[in-house]
């Protein structure tokens, strides 16, 4: 009986939780936008760049991948309080972007290197510059190959955005905490929160699979 009433309280909070989904998505999308851009640039530098630039990309990837996301997040946030003020909302976006960029750079690097060398040679032989070769020949093929791996990374970013609760950003996870405290029903609350994350990743993964098959090159095995 008591459980029912409490459960109803949690269910009544679902619209409140869904408002948090909006913020979760904002964080995820912005972080992915920045992270993908940075990851792509790092990957291109890593494969085609020379000397110091390439070295930087390598070190960036190693360094960032060896730090826990939470540490990056706190460093950014407290760097914020001591030098420039970074609002919690932007601290989580930047932390996610920096973190994810390292993993994405590895994904894109692998995809770029999987395209046969002859593709770039054919582009150069036509008179294209290296940049034209990269943008018109290599990337259109490499990005297609990267889609499933990128989609996987994107769901990780979505889930990792829940770390924003540590800074008090009222995204889905933080709201879950409030609801859990108010209803004294942590289990049910977090099951509901978990189901919402599940729903989000499911929809995202499904739509990426659709994108993947839509842009598939006809006749090509992979």
């Amino acid at each position: 009986m008591g459980l029912n009433i409490s459960a109803n309280k949690v269910l009544a909070s679902i619209p409140y939780l869904f408002e948090g989904v909006g913020i979760t998505l904002e964080i995820t999308i912005l972080a992915l936008l920045l992270g993908t851009l940075l990851g792509l640039v790092l990957a291109i530098i890593r494969v085609y760049g020379s000397g110091a630039f390439r070295q930087f990309a390598v070190i960036y990837s190693r360094l960032v991948r060896s730090l826990p996301l939470l540490v990056i997040l706190f460093m950014l946030y407290f760097l914020g309080s001591e030098i420039i003020d970074i609002p919690a909302f932007w601290a989580i976006i930047l932390a996610l972007a920096i973190h994810s960029a390292a993993y994405q750079s590895e994904i894109f690097r692998g995809a770029i290197q999987s395209i046969s060398k002859g593709q770039m040679e054919a582009a150069l032989a036509l008179g294209m510059s290296k940049y034209q070769g990269i943008f018109y020949v290599i990337l259109p093929q490499a990005l297609r190959r990267a889609i499933p791996y990128w989609a996987n990374e994107a769901t990780i970013v979505l889930k990792d955005s829940s770390l924003a609760y540590a800074l008090g950003v009222t995204e889905l996870m933080r709201r879950g905490e409030y609801v859990s405290a108010r209803t004294s029903q942590p289990l049910i609350t977090y099951i509901v929160v978990g189901l919402i994350y599940l729903l989000l990743t499911y929809v995202f993964t499904k739509s990426m699979a659709r994108v993947e098959s839509k842009v598939k090159i006809p006749g090509l095995e992979r």
């Binding site: 054919a122 150069l124 032989a125 090159i217």
Partner: peptide, 19 residues
């Protein structure tokens, strides 16, 4: 790049742009 425009090249393994 300008010189290469004037020299056509055909490769053993074609190297057509797959996409």
């Amino acid at each position: 790049n300008y010189i290469r425009q004037q020299i056509g090249m055909v490769f053993q393994d074609f190297n057509l742009f797959n996409h």
